Simulated assay, not measured.
Amino acid sequence: MKIFLSITLIIIAMNVAAQEVNKKVHDKIHNKDILLNACSRQGLITFPEFKEMYDPLYEAYIPDAATMIELKKLIKKEHIKIILGTWCGDSKVNVPNFFKVLDALQFKEKNTEIIAVDGSKKAENGIIDGLNIINVPTFIVFDKKGNELGRIVEHPKTTLEADLLAIFKKKK
């Protein structure tokens, strides 16, 4: 059984690794071109419709300094998945602000995974299966073992940095 599971996981990993990064497709629900599946940050922030709001919002967002100091102390080797829609207004607003927070924390880019979904909030090859994505953006924090610590769905309850702090404090 263990061998079967290991082989299955390897096949899934190979499918994900073989995926085209920053794949552009036409979304029938929104009748526009979107990004789908795994994305790089560079691919995301240069995608025309997303870039339009990204640059000014990223520049304008100022994370709360006191919250950031506290948050910085708690970050270790967590992993963050960002599930977004390049067509989605909430994604266009909150993703740039979230990246501003991550950059201020000097969060390692290799520990961040970006996945774009279509208008049905689906991606290909099962890369978001089991994540229970209902709204986007969804920011999911995982510990180094892959256990979910918490998530921010669509928009923060207070601020992105305060909501992240609440997730990291639960980890203790």
Rank of each mutant, 00 (worst) to 15 (best):
G89K: 04
K122M: 11
K144T: 12
K110F: 02
Y54L: 01
V117Q: 03
T8E: 11
T8M: 12
I83W: 00
D64G: 02
I10T: 14
F99P: 00
I167W: 03
P63F: 04
T112M: 11
G89V: 08
K2I: 06
V117L: 10
F50T: 05
I29C: 03
A123W: 00
P156W: 01
N132Y: 12
F99W: 12
I128G: 00
T86K: 06
V141C: 05
Y61N: 13
E59S: 14
S6L: 15
F142V: 03
T158I: 08
I152S: 01
K110Y: 09
I12M: 04
E154K: 11
N15Q: 15
N22E: 07
T86G: 01
E70R: 12
I45Y: 05
T159G: 11
T112R: 05
Y58N: 14
Y58H: 14
I12H: 06
I83M: 00
V93N: 09
F99A: 06
D55H: 07
N37C: 08
K169M: 05
K108W: 01
D90P: 06
T158H: 14
E154P: 03
E49F: 02
L84H: 02
E148A: 09
L131H: 12
I127Y: 05
A17R: 08
K171G: 00
G146K: 06
H79N: 11
K24T: 14
E154A: 10
N37V: 04
Y54N: 08
E124V: 03
K76G: 06
L102M: 15
H26V: 03
L5M: 13
K2N: 14
G85W: 01
I133K: 02
R151T: 04
F142H: 08
K108A: 10
S6F: 15
D64N: 15
A18R: 14
R41F: 09
T138L: 01
A17Q: 10
F50E: 02
E59P: 01
K100V: 12
K100W: 03
L160H: 03
M1S: 13
A13V: 10
L164W: 06
L165I: 05
K110D: 14
F4G: 05
D129N: 13
E161Q: 09
M14I: 15
G43R: 01
A116M: 04
A162T: 13
R151P: 00
N111I: 05
M53F: 14
C39E: 07
D27R: 11
I167L: 12
P56F: 07
S120E: 15
D143M: 08
R41H: 14
L164P: 00
P137W: 07
N111E: 08
W87A: 01
I134E: 14
I127W: 07
L71F: 07
V117P: 00
K108N: 10
K170I: 02
V136H: 01
I83D: 01
I10E: 04
H155N: 11
T158E: 13
I128K: 00
F107T: 00
G146Y: 04
V93H: 08
I12F: 10
L149H: 09
M1N: 12
T8C: 10
I134N: 11
K170S: 13
G119K: 04
K171P: 02
I167E: 06
E78D: 10
I34L: 07
K145G: 05
I11G: 04
A166F: 11
I82F: 04
L131I: 02
I45L: 08
L84C: 08
L149G: 05
L149C: 07
I3K: 15
